[in-house]
């Protein structure tokens, strides 16, 4: 539990932070998909679906499209970046060593 809490509290620009973003975006997409909001994407052709009002249909379509494109374009970039950053930290020796971390030798800005 403590590890999960620490990951969730990790800075946004860190390997763990990137994974948190990935999960958040994918989860958001899952929610809009489960709610069936993708049907509202027909608004792109100027067609208002079913009995929706144009405003509500546009809002749902925008939310779903943002979540979908986030999940397909942005989330994988965050996931990949997480792995790349870990590799870079190790390669460049810039990762915090456990002893330093325990001692709190470095502080986040």
């Amino acid at each position: 539990m403590k590890a999960i809490y620490q990951i969730l509290k990790s800075p946004s620009l860190s390997p763990a932070g990137f994974l948190v973003w990935t999960c958040a975006i994918v989860a958001l997409f899952g929610v809009t998909h489960a709610l069936g909001w993708r049907e509202n994407a027909t608004i792109l052709t100027g067609t208002v679906p079913g009995d929706e009002s144009p405003g509500a249909a546009s809002l749902k379509a925008m939310a779903h499209m943002a979540a979908y494109f986030g999940a397909t374009l942005v989330a994988p970039v965050f996931a990949l970046a997480s792995g790349i950053m870990v590799l870079l930290q190790r390669r460049l020796g810039s990762g915090r060593r456990p002893a330093q971390a325990a001692a709190g030798a470095e502080k986040d800005p």
Binding site: S10, L13, S14, A16, M85, L88, Q89, L92, S94, K107
Partner: peptide, 14 residues
């Protein structure tokens, strides 16, 4: 701690 990261050059690396 490597995974959550807090190195000085972290932002640039990110």
């Amino acid at each position: 701690s490597e995974f959550t990261g807090s190195a000085p050059r972290r932002k640039a690396l990110a």
